[in-house]
């Protein structure tokens, strides 16, 4: 019985810590500007901005997955959910004015992915910084 209690308490404690540990990840340079200007990113019709953001946060893998197959296999171009757009807005710039790879530790993608322990496979092939200006 006492053992059960210990397990129960540690689970409670763990979830409390996990909760208090929540913080907004490094949004990246353009996304931060966008937010500071008061613009509503990822806003969907018929949904509040807050709800749209939650949806984006929860479902970005599904959205990207769906689009990726359409683009590559059927040749559907343009539209929402393009990985290069994610990278474009959510990368940061370091002191030297260079873009930091979005999957680097403490950057936009890595923050959450490391915390929840899910692999981040996009960038084993995709470019991690916005394309160089031509």
């Amino acid at each position: 019985m006492s053992r059960l209690l210990v397990v129960f308490l540690s689970v409670m404690l763990g979830s409390a810590i996990a909760h208090s540990d929540y913080h907004i990840p490094n949004l990246g340079e353009k996304a931060t500007e966008f937010k500071d200007e008061g613009k509503e990113a990822h806003k969907r019709e018929g949904m509040s901005h807050a709800a749209s953001l939650i949806l984006q946060r929860k479902m970005h893998p599904e959205l990207l997955l769906h689009k990726r197959d359409k683009t590559l296999r059927q040749g559907v171009r343009g539209g929402y959910a393009q990985l290069k757009e994610c990278v474009e807005c959510h990368t940061s710039v370091d002191k030297n004015g260079e873009h930091v790879p979005i999957n680097a530790p403490d950057q936009f993608c890595a923050t959450c992915h490391e915390k929840v322990g899910t692999s981040l496979d996009c960038f084993s092939c995709h470019r991690t910084t916005p394309a160089e200006e031509l």
Binding site: E40, K43, R44, E45, K70, G75, V76, R77, G78, G79, Y80
Partner: peptide, 9 residues
């Protein structure tokens, strides 16, 4: 749909 954004081909 999105309030704004490019259309898919």
């Amino acid at each position: 749909t999105f309030a704004a954004g490019p259309k898919e081909t």
